[in-house]
Nucleic acid binder design. Structure first.
Length: 664
DNA sequence: GACTAACGTTTTTTT
DNA sequence: AACGTTAGTC
């Protein structure tokens, strides 16, 4: 606490009433917030009255741990530190019956959600309709968040799909991510006893990454805050990069409108980056208009200049970075963990990964294909969900015939039709004598056998005497699921990876079960987990490959930002939609991740879907102030290096060039 | 009902 | 280039 600067100290001591902390990148935000909460407890505040909302589950876990280290683990355990979505799950699991849902509602997400939408597109728009599920989902999502009824969506097709989607998941007693917030807010607004219960529970509320909250989340906060108004929000409007998800910078820009007379504290001293990096970042972000003007004051004067390199192609870009990283690493003094490569889209990671593998550089990919979106993982989770709740149609339909067990497409269609007609779950239809009698002998027997098999495990789970992980493990091996997945794999490598995924899920379940968690709690946590579960990937060593979005909140000594080209950053879509400001903030976030060195690069030619496309440098490159920028090109660097190292050996430089060519 | 071959589509960012 | 979907065949 003694090492806090003046502004941080002020923040830590402003415990009551509305407080807004404007914390620029690298200004010790997390430390300030954790100190503030620890101080709160020190001052006699009951830990169970503390609510801290973070942007990701990972951030929540970290914050909890840090506060625990400062006060006591026991006190930290009593606090509620979680995301908005987790908070709403807690509220809903307790009180959702007020809204007509059953308490064991399931959460639909990711691939399952997309799959459902795909079906509805065909049902409502015909099989030749070419609208993308993602687009439909995002339209439905923004309508929901804006409080527009599905019936009132302008586009008639999307409206029809929206209505069907809403009714479908409602009938399945399921909710999606938006519903979590929507229903949570509804519950708190319409039922005063529920609202009072939660208001009484929380005496002090903190919201981190406030620039990324949306209008609905703002309303949720207002419901939870009582007349004492002990609300503290922390954020930086310059780092608002989730506008596409409905985030309202207005929450931060017009905070006074929601909570009058707030104390506003600015953290402006940057402890992370060199002056060179900060100056470059500042020169970029000042091109945005309508921001809460704030200075970022360097505490580390000077520093290495920012490197800006033009590359011939994306292949060379990746290879160059990998080589340079290796050279710096081998020189000594640097760990692989010190390096990070940041990119705009996940698709850009492939070339980088290849280059890393080639030079045997260990790396960790954050995000990309989310663990929970992998097919085998979703399948196993579907089985687990089914064991917990047979009424959930989505998981049932997902695994009904995988592995194949003689229940084919046509049988499934009949079952779904029957369940819709009878207004019951698919599971009920499968058990319905009336339905079974309309089938041929073979599918009927297959269904009976499957129900019987599953029922045995459901009973074992429900007695609760065994570890659920062990039960599921046995089940998965009985149905030969691993073998089934292996048959679909092309390489032994892939088979290995998929087995690992299956076993990871089961191991996680076993662990959760040991801790006394129910299947329901386990499933909730899986649905809401961002990309990795607390411990597994976190331990992985190596350089970091990450999207700029996912890099928010992280820092690295040596940062590379690749693909600074028009169409990639700013992304072509943001240019069309007129949201280039947000792309600029995104780059600003990327730049401010760097502590010591920063290297920016762009390509002249990029391989897209197999063929080459020529690129123009990003408009943002012209916006940077060049005082601390060193501009070079791949050709310059490679040219000098070859002649340096291999002296005037004509043939070896020739060979190097030829090898270079034959690669691409 | 299961397997294979050809086809067409893909790439924004995530709780 | 790679993946998922679809149509056609056994």
């Amino acid at each position: 606490m003694s090492s806090l600067n003046k502004a941080q100290f002020e923040a830590v001591n402003a415990l009551d009433g509305p407080v807004m902390i404007l914390a620029g990148a690298g200004t010790g935000k997390t430390r300030t917030v954790t100190c503030r909460i620890a101080h709160l407890i020190d001052q006699g505040c009951d830990p169970s009255g503390v609510l801290a909302v973070t942007f990701t589950n990972k951030a929540a876990a970290e914050m909890k741990e840090r506060i625990g280290d400062m006060i006591s683990q026991k006190a930290a355990k009593e606090m509620m530190v979680c995301t908005f979505h987790s908070l709403c799950v807690r509220i809903l699991r307790q009180n959702i019956e007020e809204l007509g849902y059953k308490k064991n509602f399931s959460i639909i997400m990711g691939g399952d959600q997309t799959g459902l939408i795909k079906q509805l597109i065909v049902r409502k728009g015909g099989s030749k309709e070419k609208i993308m599920p993602g687009e439909v989902l995002s339209k439905i999502s923004s309508a929901k968040n804006a409080g527009i009824a599905m019936e009132d969506i302008e586009d008639s097709l999307i409206s029809a799909i929206g209505v069907a989607y809403r009714d479908e998941i409602r009938a399945q007693n399921a909710v999606d991510f938006d519903d979590l917030l929507l229903l949570g807010e509804k519950l708190l607004t319409n039922f005063s006893h529920v609202r009072r219960q939660w208001q009484e529970r929380f005496s002090h509320i903190t919201v981190d990454e406030f620039q990324d909250t949306n209008a609905l989340q703002m309303r949720l906060i207002q419901r939870l805050v009582d007349e004492k108004r002990n609300i503290c929000v922390v954020g930086d409007d310059d780092q608002s990069i989730y506008g596409w998800r409905g985030a309202e910078v207005a929450n931060i820009l017009e905070f006074e409108r929601f909570f009058s007379n707030p104390r506003i504290i600015r953290l402006e001293e940057n402890y992370r980056s060199s002056e060179a990096i900060l100056h470059t970042a500042n020169s970029l972000i000042k091109h945005n208009i309508g921001r809460r003007e704030k200075a970022l004051i360097p505490t580390k004067a000077g520093g290495e200049p920012v490197k800006l390199i033009s590359m011939p192609g994306d292949e060379e870009e990746a290879q160059f970075i990998a080589q340079e990283m290796k050279a710096i690493h081998d020189r000594g003094g640097k760990k692989w963990e010190d390096f990070a490569i940041l990119f705009r889209t996940n698709g850009q990671s492939r070339k980088l990964e290849e280059a890393m593998r080639e030079l045997k550089i260990p790396y960790r990919m954050v995000g990309a294909q989310s663990f929970y979106d992998r097919r085998e993982v979703r399948d196993v989770l579907a089985y687990i969900e089914l064991l917990a709740n047979q009424e959930a149609d989505v998981p049932l339909l997902r695994i009904l015939n995988s592995p194949p067990r003689g229940i084919g497409q046509s049988t499934i269609v009949q079952a779904v039709d029957h369940s819709r007609e009878m207004q019951q779950s698919v599971w009920e239809s499968l058990n319905d004598e009336g339905f079974r009698s309309q089938l041929g002998a073979r599918p009927r027997n297959a269904i009976i056998a499957f129900n019987h098999q599953l029922q045995g495990y459901i009973d074992r789970i429900q007695t609760g005497s065994e570890n659920a992980g062990h039960v599921v493990k046995e089940f998965i091996s009985e149905i030969d699921y691993v073998d089934f997945i292996h048959r679909g794999c092309k390489t032994p490598d892939e088979a290995e990876k998929r087995s690992e995924g299956i076993h990871d899920v089961i191991a996680q379940l076993a662990k959760a079960s040991d801790k006394g968690k129910t299947l329901r709690v386990f499933l909730d946590e899986s649905s809401l987990a961002s990309d990795r579960d607390d411990d597994d990937i976190e331990k992985k060593q190596g350089a970091t490959l990450i999207t700029m979005h996912a890099s928010k909140g992280l820092e690295f000594p040596n940062v590379y930002i690749v693909g600074l080209e028009q169409g990639i950053l700013p992304h072509s879509r943001s240019v069309e939609e007129g949201t280039v400001d947000e792309e600029r903030r995104l780059l600003y976030v990327g730049v401010t991740r760097a502590q010591i060195t920063l290297t920016l690069s762009y390509c002249s030619i990029r391989t897209k879907w197999g063929d080459k496309v020529s690129c123009t440098p990003s408009q943002f490159l012209q916006e940077f102030d060049v005082t601390f920028i060193d501009e070079t090109s791949y050709e310059d660097i490679m040219g000098t290096e070859i002649s340096d190292e291999e002296a005037a050996d004509f043939f070896s430089s020739m060979r190097a060039m030829l090898l270079e060519d034959s690669d691409s």
